[in-house]
């Protein structure tokens, strides 16, 4: 069964249609790039799957159910901005996540934090932007979730941090879980993806595997994307 499915999904805000009749299906074991220019609906789709927004029309199903308490237990969501309070120390974050999520593996998180040399006594607000992003990613990826939703995890980080993030995604690969990564920096993530979904003005312009695009187009997904979205 699909871990994430959208059927005729639309989301309209007062003056904008963010998603317009989206149909898609994501299977467990896949690492999927959610690609599209700014304003194409990536974050809206992720927020709908995370249960932070409700559809205007159509359905979104996580593991066969509408987003709610049960789906949140299996969805690990990394928002596109800081989501932890500044005063919180790394140690407190670990117990906070442990309290909230049954599937949180604190030892795994500690191991990754140690590898990066992050001090457990350090508070969130004293960390650099890159460190904050790494810490938040570690917390989210240390859950044994069925669906990981990573909203722009590599926007605005240095190349070493980007490598760490991609490495973490590969290291934590689980055939029973799907990972959705939204980004417009395709060249950086292309190699770790199974498939890509192109969003364009709230619609799915294409869902295909990375290697089938390369095979059929004779160019990288990044180059192909630039042609599709040429302004």
């Amino acid at each position: 069964m699909a871990i994430l499915e959208c059927k005729g999904l639309s989301k309209r805000f007062k003056y904008v249609t963010a998603l317009d009749q989206v149909n898609l299906c994501i299977e467990p074991g896949r690492v999927v790039g959610l690609l599209g220019p700014n304003g194409s609906g990536k974050t809206t789709l992720i927020k709908l799957a995370a249960g932070l927004l409700t559809p205007t029309e159509g359905e979104i199903l996580v593991n066969g159910q509408a987003p709610g308490v049960e789906s949140k237990a299996i969805v690990a969501y990394l928002p596109d901005r800081d989501f932890l309070p500044g005063w919180m120390k790394v140690e407190q974050m670990l117990s906070f996540f442990g309290d909230f999520y049954e599937d949180f593996d604190a030892d795994k998180a500690r191991e990754m934090l140690t590898r990066l040399g992050i001090n457990p006594k350090q508070s969130f607000k004293t960390m650099s932007k890159g460190t904050r992003e790494k810490v938040q990613l570690i917390l989210v990826m240390s859950r044994k979730a069925g669906l990981y939703l990573l909203d722009e995890p590599i926007g605005g980080v240095d190349p070493a941090t980007r490598d760490f993030i991609l490495d973490t995604i590969i290291r934590n690969y689980n055939p029973d879980a799907a990972v959705v990564i939204s980004t417009h920096l395709i060249a950086d993530v292309e190699q770790v993806l199974d498939e890509v979904i192109f969003l364009q003005q709230g619609r799915v312009a294409l869902q295909a595997s990375v290697d089938s695009i390369r095979e059929e187009q004779g160019k990288s997904v990044d180059q192909y994307f630039r042609e599709v979205y040429r302004c």
Partner: peptide
């Protein structure tokens, strides 16, 4: 497979 995928920086399915 996982270690090779990590070394090459590619998706484990690939």
């Amino acid at each position: 497979v996982r270690d090779l995928a990590m070394e090459a920086g590619v998706n484990p399915n690939t």
